[in-house]
């Protein structure tokens, strides 16, 4: 069965969706990601959807689910690289995905995850030493 690969990079998990999603593929990604977060105690998840042409209500919901589930497991999720046409369509569809953090590209998404991690673990001493 087709699967979307998940890369582990230190504290983060990296997913680049290179094919158009269909329901079973998206569901598989959801469970794989949750299992990986648990296994590696990951602190952040970055999902790059720049190659995805269509996000409908089901796939939008999966992305929202992933964000919520990883939150429960103490990991932040950032969705990056959404195409303009996809963003406009999601809004028209009525799915503003308010619970999901977004960033323009992988670079900005990684910076966002690092920021979040840094902020949650920040103590006065730490910030002085760094």
């Amino acid at each position: 069965m087709e699967k979307i690969p998940i890369l582990k990079m230190g504290d983060f998990l990296l997913v680049t969706v290179q094919v158009d999603l269909y329901d079973r593929l998206a569901l598989g990604l959801e469970s794989d990601l949750v299992n990986m977060i648990r296994k590696y105690s990951s602190r952040g998840v970055l999902i790059d959807i720049s190659a995805v042409n269509i996000v409908d209500s089901f796939m939008g919901r999966i992305l929202g689910n992933i964000a919520q589930m990883s939150k429960i497991l103490d990991a932040h999720t950032v969705v990056v690289g959404m195409q303009p046409a996809v963003a406009i369509t999601l809004i028209e569809l009525g799915l503003p995905m308010t619970g999901v953090h977004t960033a323009l590209n992988v670079e900005k998404g990684m910076a966002m995850l690092r920021d979040k991690l840094f902020l949650t673990e920040e103590t006065p001493n730490d910030s002085d030493n760094n």
């Binding site: 329901d23 042409n53 269509i54 996000v55 409908d56 209500s57 089901f58 195409q83 303009p84 046409a85 996809v86 406009i88 369509t89 028209e92 569809l93």
Partner: peptide
């Protein structure tokens, strides 16, 4: 256009599901 195309395909995707 790309936006209209994406809207059409997304609507189709909903209905096929």
């Amino acid at each position: 256009g790309l936006v209209n195309q994406t809207k059409l395909l997304t609507a189709a995707s909903e209905l096929v599901r």
